[in-house]
Amino acid sequence: MRTCSHSLGHATEINAMRWLAHNSVVLRSQKTNNQPSWYACTSRMDCGPPATAFYTQLWTSASGESRAHLIYVHGFGEHVGRYEDIFPLWVNNGVSVFAYDQRGFGRTALDEEHKSATSSWCRSCWKDQVEDLEFFIGYESTRVGHNLPIFLMGFSMGGTEVLGIVATPPLRHHVVNRISGVIAEGPMLLVANPDAWEEEPREPGDPSDDTPEDPYEVVPIPLRDAGKWQSRNPTIIEAFKTDPLLHNYTTRQLRNDTLSSGSALAKENFKNWPKNLPLLIVHGDGDLINSCKASQDFVRDTEAADATCSPYPGAYHELHHEPDGQGLQAVNECIKWMIDHIPGRS
Score class of each variant (00 low, 15 high):
119 S>G: 11
104 G>A: 10
131 E>F: 00
151 F>H: 03
192 A>N: 07
156 S>W: 02
109 A>S: 11
94 G>K: 12
178 R>F: 03
145 G>M: 11
91 V>H: 05
129 Q>S: 13
168 T>H: 13
160 T>W: 01
93 N>I: 03
130 V>P: 00
183 I>M: 09
147 N>Q: 15
110 L>W: 07
140 E>H: 06
94 G>T: 09
88 P>Q: 06
139 Y>S: 08
102 Q>D: 05
109 A>G: 07
171 L>I: 12
191 V>W: 12
159 G>A: 02
143 R>N: 11
158 G>S: 06
165 I>K: 07
108 T>F: 00
144 V>R: 10
160 T>A: 12
184 A>F: 01
138 G>A: 10
126 W>R: 04
98 F>G: 08
99 A>E: 04
182 V>I: 03
109 A>I: 11
193 N>P: 00
147 N>W: 09
192 A>G: 10
150 I>T: 04
139 Y>V: 04
168 T>G: 02
134 E>R: 15
125 C>M: 08
144 V>L: 12
118 T>M: 12
89 L>Q: 15
160 T>S: 12
166 V>D: 10
178 R>D: 01
87 F>V: 09
150 I>A: 01
165 I>E: 01
140 E>D: 05
166 V>N: 11
96 S>Y: 05
113 E>V: 14
99 A>C: 15
165 I>R: 08
101 D>N: 05
108 T>H: 06
164 G>Q: 02
180 S>E: 09
132 D>W: 06
118 T>D: 15
147 N>V: 09
125 C>E: 10
156 S>I: 01
88 P>K: 06
188 M>P: 03
159 G>P: 01
99 A>Y: 05
175 V>S: 08
185 E>Y: 10
132 D>R: 09
178 R>V: 03
144 V>H: 00
180 S>F: 04
165 I>Y: 09
153 M>I: 04
124 S>P: 07
141 S>P: 03
183 I>E: 04
161 E>R: 07
190 L>D: 03
145 G>F: 10
112 E>S: 10
89 L>T: 13
103 R>H: 08
128 D>A: 10
146 H>S: 15
142 T>H: 13
90 W>D: 08
159 G>M: 03
97 V>H: 02
151 F>D: 01
139 Y>H: 15
159 G>I: 01
116 S>R: 06
132 D>F: 07
